[in-house]
């Protein structure tokens, strides 16, 4: 899977690094710091298909990032924690393709330092619930069988009932989770696309149906689960496709067990849009006109995005998702 593995030399005796390397069975190349190579030159995104490198490193600088309000919990602070850069999957709309200069993956192993920062931030809001999201720069479950950090974050939630962690994923890699006990404040959220669209645009990911099965498995084990329909992309009969997805979720008894369902219509920054055009010129994403919107992001027209969002929202309510649990990713929060 990996073209080359680079490890920061000061980490080579770190037990977590040793454990990753043992599983990968590939001789690493030692470097002083990951950023001496990673992102130094513009490596085209699609080179990840045949020459994806892995960097194992220590995250320096910002470990937590303040995020906008989410999931209808206005006023509650939300943070992203940064434990990895880039992703093994290849969703055609992924914003990472225009975000970093390289698709090479970095796994940061200084989780204790990240958790320390989380603890500090939690204490700075003594009476409030605080949210921590993984998966802004990577899928948060896809490589956890390798990295083995879940237990640390789970412990953090156990000790801190005021903190809620959301692990956002398209993976079905739930083995490590099942080994842990479910917690009210440890939520696993799955991004889902309608079945037909998912096959075309969620490249290299497990199918939406497999993701639903993973959700059922987690639910059976007492886990808190949530779903994201984001990005919603236009195709003929898109509402029917969402109805089919929601009906399947209903049949699997998922719709009335969600912590929340977030909805968002596809949007891009200018740079990401240019990359998507370059990388996936035949993608269905380009078959519907888009405009430069009020905030310079590339989106469908205002009537179109509102129309689509409301259609999917109605379909979700009809499938049994409580309307209070449906969170619309509104434009001012993007």
């Amino acid at each position: 899977m990996w073209n080359k593995i680079y490890v920061e030399e000061h980490l080579i005796h770190n037990p977590r690094v040793q454990s990753i390397l043992e599983k990968l069975k590939q001789v690493p190349i030692l470097i002083t710091s990951y950023d001496e190579i990673w992102g130094k030159s513009k490596k085209p995104y699609l080179h990840k298909r045949d020459s994806l490198n892995l960097f194992i490193a220590q995250k320096k600088g910002q470990l937590l990032k303040l995020a906008p309000d989410a999931y209808g919990q206005a006023g509650e602070p939300h943070y992203y924690f940064i434990h990895a850069f880039n992703c093994i999957y290849e969703c055609q709309y992924c914003y990472l393709q225009g975000y970093f200069n390289t698709p090479d993956i970095v796994l940061f192993v200084n989780h204790e330092e990240i958790l320390e920062e989380m603890q500090k931030s939690l204490e700075s809001y003594p009476n409030q619930k605080v949210w921590y999201h993984a998966g802004e720069f990577s899928d948060s479950l896809a490589l956890t069988h390798l990295t083995g950090e879940l237990e640390l974050y789970h412990d953090f939630c156990k000790k801190n009932p005021r903190a809620t962690i959301e692990l956002r994923t398209k993976s079905v890699n739930i083995k490590e989770l099942i080994k842990l006990s479910p917690l009210k404040n440890f939520i696993i959220s799955f991004s889902l696309s309608p079945f037909s669209m998912g096959k075309v645009i969620d490249l290299k990911t497990p199918s939406s149906l497999s993701r639903l099965k993973a959700m059922v498995e987690l639910k059976k084990n007492g886990y808190q689960i949530a779903a994201h329909f984001d990005p919603i992309i236009y195709q003929d009969q898109f509402d029917e496709h969402y109805k089919t997805l929601l009906q399947t979720m209903k049949d699997m008894e998922l719709t009335d067990n969600l912590n929340y369902l977030s909805l968002g219509v596809v949007r891009f920054t200018k740079d990401v849009y240019r990359e998507v055009e370059r990388n996936y010129p035949d993608s269905p994403i380009h078959s519907t006109p888009m405009i430069k919107s009020f905030d310079n992001k590339v989106r469908y027209t205002h009537p179109m995005r509102m129309w689509m969002m409301n259609k999917v929202k109605d379909a979700a309510i009809n499938a049994g998702v409580s309307s209070e649990l449906i969170y619309l990713c509104m434009e001012e929060n993007d």
Binding site: S41, K42, K43
Partner: peptide, 18 residues
Amino acid sequence: VRSIYLIIDGKPQFKSFK
């Protein structure tokens, strides 16, 4: 050739060409 990178002192430089 797909992409071309420049290496100075063993380190990649930012600009690359396709």
